[in-house]
């Protein structure tokens, strides 16, 4: 078919559409949703008993703030990258917060090593962390991808990655509010591992979803 005729066909079948909210508002909407969900979980479990004392330690606070910023930054970056004309540099937005977070966890591991002795003594299993981050993170990631479903034909990869990261980081931050997990190495292993799992799951499950959206003919 000639391209000029194709244009005529597209214009001929034109129906009015509802304009999508700007990416900033989309990200804010999702962050509100995530905050509400995590808040409910915290209410259900009750705050951890030593929260007040931990919030007096600057390093703990910095770690927690960094995880929240990483989540928020990833959500905004995902919403921006879902639009074709926004710069890819948005993808760098959550990087500093992520770095601070992981470096502070690594530093915490070293500090624990000096304080508590060998690592083996601090290792244990915490399936609860994994379960919470996955159970909370998967629906949040799904909501994220549904909001950003228009990214399919443009940049599905980075959007999926950042969306999964946003969900995982916020779940981890929420979990830190009520779950008692002292050793930094445990947080690094279980939170970090759960996040990696969630990001990979988001990637694998999200791809076909966005691809099917891309293939759907709305003409």
């Amino acid at each position: 078919m000639r391209t000029e005729d194709f244009i005529g066909q597209l214009a001929g079948g034109l129906r009015p559409v509802r304009r999508m909210a700007p990416p900033g508002r989309q990200a804010a909407l999702w962050l509100g949703l995530a905050a509400g969900a995590v808040g409910l979980a915290v209410l259900a479990h009750g705050l951890r008993h030593d929260l007040q004392e931990r919030m007096l330690m600057p390093q703990e606070v910095a770690q927690w703030v960094a995880s929240v910023l990483a989540g928020g930054g990833s959500a905004l970056a995902a919403a921006m990258l879902a639009r074709p004309d926004r710069s890819w540099r948005w993808a760098l937005l959550p990087v500093p917060a992520l770095l601070v977070w992981f470096v502070s966890l690594g530093w915490g591991c070293l500090a624990d090593l000096a304080r508590l002795g060998p690592m083996e003594g601090q290792l244990g299993t915490s399936w609860g962390c994994l379960r919470f981050i996955l159970a909370m993170g998967l629906p949040l990631a799904a909501a994220q991808f549904w909001l950003l479903r228009h990214a399919g034909p443009v940049r599905p990869g980075p959007v999926l990655l950042l969306g999964g990261l946003a969900s995982a980081a916020l779940c981890s931050a929420g979990l830190s509010l009520f779950h008692h997990l002292d050793a930094a190495v445990m947080i690094l292993l279980w939170h970090g591992g759960a996040m990696a799992l969630l990001v990979v799951a988001g990637w694998l499950l999200g791809r076909p979803f966005l691809a099917s959206r891309a293939g759907r003919d709305q003409a």
């Binding site: 391209t3 194709f6 034909p153």
Partner: peptide
């Protein structure tokens, strides 16, 4: 070009009028 036109058509609701 035709692929692009189809994508433009599908994504027309995501365009923000304030931007070029």
């Amino acid at each position: 070009v035709q692929d692009a036109l189809l994508t433009i058509h599908r994504l027309r609701h995501s365009y923000e009028p304030a931007r070029p």
